[in-house]
Simulated scan of single mutants.
Amino acid sequence: MRRNQTGTRPEFEHPESLRRLLIRLDQAGPDAWRSDPAATELMRHAATKYAALARKHGLDPWEAATAAFEAMRTPSVRRADDPWAVITRAVQITCIAEGRAHGLLCSVHQARRPRYSQFHDAERFSDRENQLTDYHPAFHATTSPFDDDDTHPDDLDGVTAAVSDAILLLSLLGWESNAARAAVEYVCSRLAESSSRAGAYESLRRDRHAQALLDLPSETWFRTLRILLGTPDAHLAGTNAGRGLLLRLLIGEPLSYLLHDNELVTKIIHSAPAARQKAQP
């Protein structure tokens, strides 16, 4: 392979020299890429030149060299003002598409299309700490008075009463009054900021600041959220466990009725911080 005047770089580093080499290889036929020493040297150079770009996208350098090879065989590269610039751009696009294809679990051809590339990478259920049913809206009930953005004065009175009754119920069943008020009001403040009950539950469940602020162990905090907001499991959406204490109070269930719900009463008693502290040795 001939060197340029400095003797340090291959001649095909110059755009015009590359153009002449590509034209010669094209005119010689497909076998020239296999037998011509200049073609071999060119591909080695391409693998080295685009190695960093390939690693950036998690690919092998020879995958980038393959993309360069595909570009070099096109007439547009031979006619370009700067063949190397066109090749570099083609390799960059291919590397991006390869990376997206790996993430989307589809072909590179599909990953190049905007209709597919707009999606996020595929995720395994095991990649997340939480179960899919805990955070994905497709598994949650969407009808809830807490989801309604149009709040009227009468609704505000009902919400205020529901919050007060929830605090009272927790206090009657073992919670210290100030702790019950702090926990219920914190949950309700986050619920008011969220677009849905399920979204508030997921946000609160991961809220380490709330646990520290309320001085509640993780297990007690999770129990409290399930009591107040309901269990997020889709198959329990229409049950008392799925509705949660706040929603049950909001739709008109009186305290006297809730006090006769043995399952709810047991859950509240077991969740009380004071009761759990006494149970510890």
Rank of each mutant, 00 (worst) to 15 (best):
A47P: 14
A47L: 12
A47E: 07
T48K: 15
T48V: 14
Y50K: 01
Y50W: 15
A51H: 07
A51F: 09
A51N: 05
L53K: 02
L53S: 07
A54C: 04
H57Q: 05
H57A: 03
G58Q: 07
D60W: 13
P61W: 01
P61A: 14
P61D: 02
E63I: 02
A64W: 00
A65Y: 01
T66N: 00
A67F: 00
A67D: 00
A67Q: 01
F69S: 05
F69A: 03
E70D: 12
M72E: 02
M72I: 00
T74Q: 03
P75F: 13
P75S: 13
P75I: 14
S76K: 15
S76C: 09
V77T: 08
R78M: 14
R79V: 01
D81A: 15
D81V: 07
D82K: 14
P83E: 07
P83M: 09
P83F: 11
W84Y: 12
A85G: 07
A85I: 14
I87F: 04
I87E: 01
T88F: 00
T88M: 03
T88H: 03
T88G: 09
R89F: 01
R89Q: 10
Q92W: 03
Q92G: 15
Q92Y: 04
Q92N: 14
I93Q: 09
I93C: 07
I93V: 12
T94C: 03
C95Q: 02
I96G: 08
A97I: 06
A97L: 06
E98L: 11
E98K: 06
E98P: 09
G99T: 05
G99P: 04
G99H: 02
G99V: 07
R100I: 06
R100K: 15
A101I: 09
H102K: 13
H102D: 05
G103Q: 10
G103F: 12
G103A: 12
L104M: 11
L104A: 11
L105H: 12
C106G: 11
S107K: 04
V108P: 00
H109M: 15
Q110M: 10
Q110L: 12
A111D: 03
A111M: 05
A111I: 03
R115K: 12
R115P: 10
Y116Q: 12
S117P: 10
S117I: 05
S117A: 05
F119V: 02
F119T: 03
H120R: 08
D121Y: 13
